[in-house]
């Protein structure tokens, strides 16, 4: 008979929203509790809903680790390019088995009063540009919009581009007028934001996956009966299993929808040699990450690489 409030950072039918509604469905089918889902903007932006969860007003929050950087700097590790596997199957393997994700991160979140329930991938990052790009040389001089984050900026600097921070509301207009020449986002955002209309050259570099995380207020979670804790865990697993299925078809469907609607769109998938040209530039971002996070970051990075090794073989 309790109302549990759950906020995330995306809009209707986006990956986080689908996850939230699956969670809600399971909880409501298997208990007397109800779950109220709040989408982006309804209770503020990403940082706001995180604070509200820490304050205990919200019980659940879905925030991408990249945005958690101001609270847990190590969480920005997901911005290091080519740290996650490039193909989908290995990525899912990685999320299921990684020690870093399933053991180290929960500890860090718990220091901030958060019970980390699940980290999950939303989709591969895709770069869109005004011209077809295949190499770091092609990237030279291009203003690529990034979120305001030092590691993302470093990534695009490493790739040869000029990282240009721009608030989200100005991205579409900025691409249209040419103040920026490109941007990066998972494909479903490129579709729903109509970004392909104004930035039609899609580039799959395999450099990263947009990752996100569901967490609960820790005092709330600790105060639940063991049955209810189990319910939360089961609901999370139910939603996670569904979402893994959901995203595997999603990228292709979205790409198909985009190609159907626009004749200007080009799709470039880099081959292994071309990827190598970008991958060679990744260490400079790693260095920046280590600079920002010190020993704990180093330990996490090492574990990440070991986990990656484990699933790749």
């Amino acid at each position: 008979q309790d109302v549990w409030r759950y906020a995330h950072e995306e809009f209707e039918d986006d990956v986080q929203d689908v996850f939230a509604y699956k969670f809600k469905e399971y909880v409501e089918d298997n208990s007397d509790h109800t779950v109220q889902v709040f989408r982006f903007g309804e209770l503020g932006e990403s940082d706001d809903i995180m604070e509200q969860t820490q304050a205990g007003i919200l019980q659940f929050v879905n925030q991408s680790p990249g945005f958690t950087g101001s609270l847990i700097p190590e969480a920005q590790i997901f911005f290091i390019p080519y740290l996650l596997p490039t193909d989908e199957e290995t990525v899912i393997d990685f999320f299921n088995n990684s020690v870093a994700i399933n053991e180290m991160f929960p500890e860090m979140y718990s220091e901030q009063g958060l019970e980390l329930l699940q980290m999950y991938p939303e989709g591969e990052m895709v770069i869109t540009t005004d011209e077809v790009v295949r190499s770091p040389e092609d990237m030279r001089g291009k203003n690529i919009r990034t979120m305001t984050n030092p590691l993302l900026s470093e990534t695009y600097r490493a790739f040869g581009a000029s990282p240009t921070p721009l608030p989200w509301g100005e991205v579409y207009g900025g691409l249209q007028t040419g103040i920026i020449d490109g941007q990066e986002n998972p494909i479903f955002w490129i579709e729903s934001g109509g970004l392909y209309e104004v930035s039609p050259n899609l580039l799959f570099t395999g450099h990263g996956w947009f990752t996100t995380a569901l967490m609960a207020n820790q005092d709330f979670y600790d105060g639940l009966s063991s049955d209810d804790q189990q319910l939360v865990q089961d609901a999370t697993e139910f939603a996670y299993d569904y979402i893994i299925d959901h995203i595997s078809g999603l990228a292709d469907d979205m790409l198909e929808a985009i190609l159907e609607r626009s004749d200007d769109v080009t799709v470039t998938r880099l081959d292994e040699d071309e990827i190598q040209a970008f991958r060679e530039r990744a260490p400079q971002v790693e260095e920046r990450f280590l600079e920002m996070t010190g020993d704990r970051g180093a330990e996490l990075l090492e574990q990440f690489k070991a986990d990656l090794e484990a699933v790749s073989n």
Binding site: G141, N143, T148, P150, S153, S162, P163, T164, P165, P167
Partner: peptide
């Protein structure tokens, strides 16, 4: 800065 140095001032927004 964006035009002369080809690099935005990243602290500008903050």
């Amino acid at each position: 800065s964006r035009f002369t140095l080809g690099e935005s001032l990243h602290f500008s927004e903050e």
